[in-house]
Structures are given as structure tokens and as C-alpha cells.
Nucleic acid binder design. Structure first.
Lengths: 105, 105
DNA sequence: GCGCAATACATCATATCACGAAGTATTCCG
DNA sequence: CGGAATACTTCGTGATATGATGTATTGCGC
């Protein structure tokens, strides 16, 4: 998929991946893979950005002798998801402009 | 609108603005304004990028004593628009992942 | 028990890109 | 005469996705 098109989706996608309950980096990537592929370095960059923006909180816990970071969505994160739904309406008007009439289909 | 979300739309939007016939920078901006606002510096950057990618051709002509650059979409540009329609299907699966069930609506 | 894949996270350098700011130059209207 | 509109250009900056690379552990096959 076009890199540029992904950009706006990446952040909300990560938020969406934890909207139903805590998760951790490695699992998020695997969960999102069928929908949107991203490299590990990208994911951890995004997780840090979202944490800085107060959209998720982090908790480090041991699992099988290894440390894992569990990410949990905050109210602010949910607000962001709600905003995204609003923005999507604008996106759809743009989409209709691009694929507008005068073309087959 | 979120800057990131715009990014993937900008290029195809400009192509869409000339898909029914030649146009020029200033007019493209005004035409797109209701759907997607962009600064002049952004537009001219994009026009140059699309020209470099062979998706449009440029022709300079005089109009009322002033020089204007007219942009015309190429076959390659039309292919890009067709690709966008395909990519959009993937985008919609991502969208559904983000706003998936477990939420009202 | 050795090697390798999978798990899990981190850092750095790089390239792309949208945009504000500023500039140049002309036309048109009051 | 002055300012808005038209029309395009250049420069610097900040944001950001990603590949490369590194660290460290667990589990599996042979």
C-alpha cells in the first residue's frame, strides 16, 4: 500500500489495537498485519509518540522471564478515535472528489 | 483535517483536479479548497513531483500578459488514479478495523 | 547442546514531505 | 495611487516511516 496513505491510519490503528484491552508491541504488529503492515521500529516510535500525547499508558511486567511493556488506551486515546471518525467524513468527501463522475464506474 | 491523513490524498487530489482537462496552479488550489486545503508551496512541490514521475506534462503559455503553466494529466497519471481506487479498498479494510464493533454505531 | 527461529524491545541515520515565510511580477478596481 | 487578486518560486524547518543494527531470552529440532 502507498506509504503516504498509511500515515494517517497508523496512529489510530495502534490505538484501535488496544481499544478492547491491554496489549504489547509484538502482539500489536501481528494483530495488525492482515490490515496494515508496519516495521517494529515504526511501531515503537508510534507507541512512544502516543504515550507522549497521553493517549495510552505503559506498564512493564515480567512474562516468562522476559520483560514486556503493556499498553493501555486512555480516555484521551478514545477521544482521538472519536475524532478520527469525524475526520473520516471529510476524507470521504475528498475521496468522492477524486473518483468523481466523468469516469466509468 | 489531520495532516497525516491528508498526505496520501494530496497527490491523487491534484491529479483528479486535472483529470477532465488542463488546469493551472492557482485554479487547482481554488478548485480543491472546498475539499482539501493546501498552501501554494505545497501545491507547486506536488506538481513538480508529479511531473518528475511522468504523471503530468507542463506547458507554459501567456495569458493576459502573464505566464501561466498549464498542467495536463498523462496516461501514467490516469494509471495512478486507477491504482488509488484499488488501494482504497485496502484503506477501507483498515478503516473497518479501526472503527470495528464493540463500539456504538 | 548447538544453532536457529521466534519473541520482545531499542536506537540511529536517512529520506520524504507539507508548510510557513518571503519574494517577484503583473493586472484590475476604487 | 494603493491594495487586492492573480501566478509562480525558493528556502528552511519539523515531523515521521523505515531499514539496519543491536541486545537478550525462550523454545524447538536434530
Amino acid at each position: 500500500m502507498d506509504i503516504q496513505l498509511k500515515r494517517g491510519l497508523l496512529d489510530v490503528c495502534v490505538l484501535a489495537a488496544i481499544q478492547d484491552g491491554e496489549s504489547y508491541g509484538y502482539r500489536i504488529i501481528k494483530e495488525m498485519k492482515p490490515y496494515l503492515e508496519m516495521s517494529e521500529s515504526t511501531l515503537y516510535t508510534i507507541l512512544k509518540r502516543l504515550e507522549g500525547a497521553g493517549m495510552l499508558t505503559v506498564r512493564t511486567a515480567e512474562h516468562d522471564g522476559r520483560l514486556r511493556k503493556y499498553y493501555k488506551i486512555t480516555d484521551r486515546g478514545r477521544v482521538r478515535l472519536a475524532e478520527f471518525r469525524e475526520e473520516w467524513k471529510e476524507i470521504m468527501t475528498v475521496y468522492r472528489f477524486v473518483v468523481r463522475e466523468g469516469n466509468k464506474q
